[in-house]
Amino acid sequence: MDIDERDRVAELWDHSQEQYRRDDRVLYWELLPAVQRYQNEMMTGDAETGYFDWTLRELEARTGNTGLRGLSIGCNEGDPACEMILFERGLFERIEVVDIAEGLLERQQGIARSRGIEGIDYLCRNLNAIEIEPDVYDFIWAVGTVHHVERLDHLFDQINKGLRSGGLFMMREYIGPRRLQFTDRQLRIVNEILRILPEPYKKTADGRIKHHLERYDIEAIKAHDPSESIRSDEIMHFAAKHLDLIEVAETGGTILHPLLSDIAFNFDRNEAGAGLIEGLILLERILIGEKVLPSDYVFCLAGKTMK
C-alpha cells in the first residue's frame, strides 16, 4: 500500500465500531450470541468458554501467572477492551497495543486511564513495517487484524522474534478468499438460502431487502479499504513458516459471514430468528465437516521456533 492508502485505512479503522454495529443493531455475524457459542465450541470445545480464557489457562501452564508482558497486534474498540480485561486480572506487568489507527488508539488509551490502568501503552505502528523487540513477550495476540497485513512474511517473522521461549501467539482470523472474492460454490449456497429465507430476515439496516449476493467488485473493496483481506489466503502458510503451530481449529464462517452481512440483527429479535440461526449454524457445520466447503476462519495457537 502507498501512503494515501495507509491514510485511508487509518481513517476507516479510527471508526471501527461502525463496521460492526449501527444504531444498536448487530451487522456482523460473529456478534450474534448463538454464533459466539458456536465459535467458542469450535475453538475451545465448550460453548460457554471463550477463547481468551482457554488460551490464558494454556499460557499460565507454560509461563506462570504473574509479571507477564503482552503485545496486541491490532487495537479493538471496547470499554473494556480485551487488553484491559487481561491487565485487570493481574497476570500482566505491561501490555502494548499496536495499530495504524491513531484516533482509535487515543480513545482506548483514554478508557484505560479512566479505569486506573497505567500499564498499557497504545502505540501507532504500521504493521507492514513493524519491528518487534526480540525475546520480550510472553503472549502476543491478533484478533481480526492479520488479514489487513500485506507483508505477512515480515509480520510473522517479527512475531516469532518477539516471543520469549515458552511464550504463546494466539490468532483469531479470516483466512478465506482474498479481497472477499467468495467462491462460486459459496455464492450459490448463500443465494439458495436467501431465496427461501422469509423476507423479514433479509432486511438490511438501511431498509433494503437482501435478495441476492453478487461477488464483490475488487476495485470497490480496495476503494473502501485498501487493506481488506489483501493476502488472507496466505496467512496460514506464513504462520506455519515462522511459528510452531500448537493448535489450529477451523471455525467456519464460510456461509454465515457472507450470508449474515448487514442482516445479522434480524436473527437476534425473537425465538423464530434464534431457531433459524441455529439451523444455519448446523448447515454450515455439516458442509465444512463433510468437506463440501473449507473453513474461512481459523483459531490458532503457536509457539516460538528457534531459527
Rank of each mutant, 00 (worst) to 15 (best):
R179C: 05
H211L: 08
I218F: 01
D206S: 09
F182M: 06
P226R: 03
H211K: 11
V190Y: 02
D217W: 00
I209K: 03
A220K: 15
T183W: 03
R188C: 08
G207R: 01
L180I: 12
H224Y: 11
A205L: 04
H211E: 14
D184P: 00
T183Q: 02
K202E: 07
L197V: 07
Q186Y: 08
K202T: 07
E199D: 11
L187D: 04
V190L: 04
Y216M: 12
A223Q: 13
K203L: 11
R188P: 00
F182K: 03
L197D: 12
K210D: 04
E214C: 03
R195P: 00
A205I: 15
R195T: 03
Y216F: 08
I193T: 09
L213V: 15
A205N: 08
R208A: 12
G207A: 07
P226T: 08
A220P: 08
E192T: 07
Y201F: 15
G207F: 05
R185G: 01
R185W: 05
R178L: 04
K203H: 08
L197G: 13
T183V: 07
A220S: 15
F182L: 07
P198V: 04
K203R: 15
L194Y: 03
A205D: 11
I221L: 14
E192Q: 14
N191A: 06
A220F: 11
P200S: 05
T183R: 01
P226F: 04
Y216G: 05
I209A: 01
K210S: 02
E192V: 01
I209S: 05
E199M: 12
R208G: 06
V190G: 05
I218V: 15
R195D: 11
R208K: 12
I193K: 10
Y216I: 02
K222C: 12
E219D: 15
H211P: 00
K222H: 13
R185L: 15
R208S: 10
H224V: 07
Y201A: 02
A223F: 05
E199A: 12
E199V: 15
P200Q: 04
L213Y: 00
P198F: 08
G207S: 06
D206W: 09
H224A: 12
K210M: 07
A223P: 06
T204A: 01
A223W: 07
D217I: 02
T183L: 02
P198H: 10
N191M: 03
A205H: 14
P200Y: 02
A205S: 08
A223M: 06
G207D: 08
R188G: 05
L180C: 14
I221S: 12
